[in-house]
Nucleic acid binder design. Sequence first.
DNA 1: ATTATTACTTTCATTTTGCAAGCAAAAATA
DNA 2: TATTTTTGCTTGCAAAATGAAAGTAATAAT
Lengths: 146, 146
Amino acid sequence: MKNFFRCKCPITSALDIIGDKWSLVLIKQMLFEGKSTFKDFAQSPESIATNILTTRLKMLEDFGIIEKQKLPTNRKTNIYTLNQRGLSLIPVLMELTFWSKHEVIEFNPDLNLDEKLEWAEANKEEAFKQVTDNYLKHKEALLNTK
Amino acid sequence: MKNFFRCKCPITSALDIIGDKWSLVLIKQMLFEGKSTFKDFAQSPESIATNILTTRLKMLEDFGIIEKQKLPTNRKTNIYTLNQRGLSLIPVLMELTFWSKHEVIEFNPDLNLDEKLEWAEANKEEAFKQVTDNYLKHKEALLNTK
DNA sequence: ATTATTACTTTCATTTTGCAAGCAAAAATA
DNA sequence: TATTTTTGCTTGCAAAATGAAAGTAATAAT
């Protein structure tokens, strides 16, 4: 872990963990798109390569951001879910969404913007909580025999 | 610009612009560390290579996140500053800071955490505004004969 | 007039990412 | 039960991004 972090800056260090090309995309897919298996991620429109996917999932697990487990009904398929450390990235992801809505749309007019975004931006705290609760319910349902 | 964006997702598209290893670090250095020249960035503890620095600054300028200009008193030194599009990334950077304070400190105990962070986390909207105003003043001072 | 500084560029090494194919274990199907 | 399909993952190699070191031209400072 020595030399893993570029310096003592909190922002730079956060980016040293989740600032690569794929980590936040994977977390977003779990959080907002209900994805939970290797196959789910591999088949995304972002189309991540499977070797990269393997190493990213392992890294996120090593940092305690996600957890991997199997259902009693299926000894093969791994279920990847966010835990608390991952869930606490929700504000970062939502602020990125807001920024995108305002500033990225000019460069990528095809952006898929949720109609509830307006409300979420005006009620951030409530929106954060709602997304968290939503995911926790989804996760529970997922892990009690899919 | 075709094929620049991986897909139609706002989060993924935002990351396609500022999700590389250095962009948010440079923006942070301007915003919180008063850096504004090529030399400032090159001498940072993160130690970015100068060739990368050149391409990143150009990219951020092309996307309208920063602007480059010269002072009347110095025809050589370029002054890089954030404009509105860059300033609206403040919430993203601050949420990253909060996440780091709670979750990254375990992996990098040397983290340099501002003592005002506690307050900022409890008063996000006010903190965002304060950081913005601070920077705008700094920028104005910077550009009126340094 | 000389030296130092600034903002780059260039070259080449290293690291990261991407693509395609392959694989073993488990699950689904016949 | 035997065969086929699916899943999660690995391997080998190509391409792209990043990094380190040195060099350069224009400007600024001495």
